[in-house]
Structure formats: structure tokens, C-alpha cells
Design a protein around this nucleic acid. Sequence first.
DNA 1: CACTATTCAGTTGCGCACAACTTAATTGTG
DNA 2: CACAATTAAGTTGTGCGCAACTGAATAGTG
Lengths: 176, 176
Amino acid sequence: MDTLGTVRDEDFLRLDHQICFSLHAATRAFNGVYRTALKDLGLTYPQYLVMLVLWEHGELPVKRIGEHLRLDSGTLSPLLKRLEAAGYVERRRSPEDERSVTARPTPAGAELRERAIGVPRRIAAATGMPLEEIRELRARLNDLTAALNLAETGAGAGAGAGAGAGASAGGCVTEE
Amino acid sequence: MDTLGTVRDEDFLRLDHQICFSLHAATRAFNGVYRTALKDLGLTYPQYLVMLVLWEHGELPVKRIGEHLRLDSGTLSPLLKRLEAAGYVERRRSPEDERSVTARPTPAGAELRERAIGVPRRIAAATGMPLEEIRELRARLNDLTAALNLAETGAGAGAGAGAGAGASAGGCVTEE
DNA sequence: CACTATTCAGTTGCGCACAACTTAATTGTG
DNA sequence: CACAATTAAGTTGTGCGCAACTGAATAGTG
């Protein structure tokens, strides 16, 4: 098996190109498929992610939505404003903490879920992958994300094994 | 093994949430790590991708860069303008086809490669993955991207096996 | 040759992502 | 209680990604 030490920097530049670009391209390909699938619903893909969270949890403070999706208020505030303008979401200041704003689906937003419920199946079909493989890939990506987030927030080079990768995933993605 | 037919739509909504979000999150985590790694060089991650292509191929028309990275002129034109403003890239109209504009690294851009050559190793270390696993993941993502692009550009539901997925990847990513 | 169709780069407009900042409310401490 | 530190949302500015469009150059057709 290759180790980091046996590969020349030159080769790394090429491999780097490939892995990071693959991820980049896969995400944009996913976005493209979602874009068409969500066009009828009038949702963008990030808006859809927010609605998935709200459908699952009901009313949530912006902060909590951000924790589920790893997004900050700079992204969520205008996004929620647009969802509110579209009539899918209601926002209001929390009575017990005036700093906090909670969002929840309106009746129209709840109804939207019925229309969105066929979307994931179409996406899964578009991947042409069996569910088992999709799950496997998901697990791999979660490990990767956890390792990268870990590496970025100070922890050493983290060069060793992939151990501990799964640990820091807690609280990130909505776990199953 | 699961097939698409044995899973309820409800469960799909949750799984969908997870796989597409995992990809989304992994890409942003990658972006974050690159952002810090590229800060010294004054490059963003997409600018780095363009420089990788130019370092490898020398002078290229905007069109070709876009084919390598799956980006259109709407994204590349302003990006190349910024790279030009930074002094890393030269642009000029092609003499034999006045519609075409070619870009190539300036001396400063070529010199930048020497400073960038350590970046991929740091990224690889941050993933905490052995190279074999990275390659495996990359292959999986390329299949996924190919299938999604295929599904989007007309071809039927593409629900069947993953067969043929690798085919349409030709011409997309810079192959090894 | 004239004239349409295509190709390529660039621009505009919109939404997302993120850093940096502002404002307001709450918490903690002397 | 007063006052600093923290927390939550929102705002601003920059860059990417993409759809839709413009304008110029080339290719193709009668």
C-alpha cells in the first residue's frame, strides 16, 4: 500500500487535482440534478436542505438549522428570508430569548413536503447506484469531512490512520 | 441488497438528506482546508484548479480550461481576469481564431507552482486517508458524476446497474 | 457571394458560502 | 447593581456557479 512518504510531490499535484476535483464535480453534478428536480417546487438545493431539516424537526432556531447543515447566519438569514417570501416558512423572535429567531414550515411549506417526497427516489435513480453503495459512499464522505474539519480546527497534521474520523461527526450531519 | 422498490418514500427523504448533504459538506470541508492552505499563495480553490490545469498544459483556450474543469465562460472569464490582475496569468486573443482567448501562466505564475507544490501533501495528510483509499473514493465519485451528468442530459432514468457509468467520464476530468 | 447557423468569450443577474463586522439580548463577574 | 464577555441574527463585501443573454468571428448552405 502506498504511504505518503513514497510519493513524489509532482505526482501529488496530479492526484490532488483529481481527488479534489472529483469531489467538486460530483457536488456540482448533484446540484444540477437537484436543480431540475426541484424546479417545479420553486426551491434551490440549499433551500431544499433547509426544508428537509424543518420538515423533520418542526420549529427550529436559526442556530440549530445551521448546526444541522453546517451553515452560518450569513448564509441562512437571506436564505430563510427568501423561503419566507415564497410562503414556505414563518419566522419569529423567540419569546424566551429575544436574540433567537425560530423558523417553521407554513401550511404551504408542509404541503410542499407531499410534492417533494418523490424527489429523492428520482435522485437515487439518477445515481444509478444500489442503495448499499450509496450508503457506503456516504459513510466514506462523512469520515472524510470529519477528518478535514478536525485537521482544520487546530488538531495536528492528523497524518496517521483514519482512526477517530467518525468521532467528531457527532452533531454535524443529522445522524440516522 | 436493497433495491429501489423495497424502500418507502419516507425513508428516501431521510437517506436523501444524508447522502446529498454528505457530499455537500465534504466539498465545503475540502474548500475550507484548501482556503487555509492557499492563503499564502493568494489563490482561491477554483483559481488553484485553473492554475493546476495551466501548469499541466501550458497555454490553453478558455474553452479547453472549461472542458477540463466543467466550467463555463460565465465562471471562467471573471476568474481569469482576477488571475490576470494578480499577475499569474496572461490572456490574449488567438491569432488564428479571433473568437478564442488563450490563457497561460506568466513567469510569476510558473514560479507560483514551486510554492504550491507542497499543498497537495498537506491536503492528503489532512484527510487522514491512505492513498489507496483516496484513489478508491475518487473512482467512486467519478462514476457518480458520470451517472448524474448522463441522467441529466436526457438519457432515461438510468435506474439499472452502475454499468456504463465510467464511459461518459472521458473528456471530463483530466484522466491519468 | 449572401445569409443563416454555430461557436466563443464576455456580461448580467441571482443565489450560495464565507469572512468580517454590527446590533441587540443575555450571561457572568466583581 | 454595573459592566465586560458572550451569544444570536443580521449586514456587507467578495468570489464562485450557472442560466440567460449579447456581440463578434467563423463555418456552413443555397
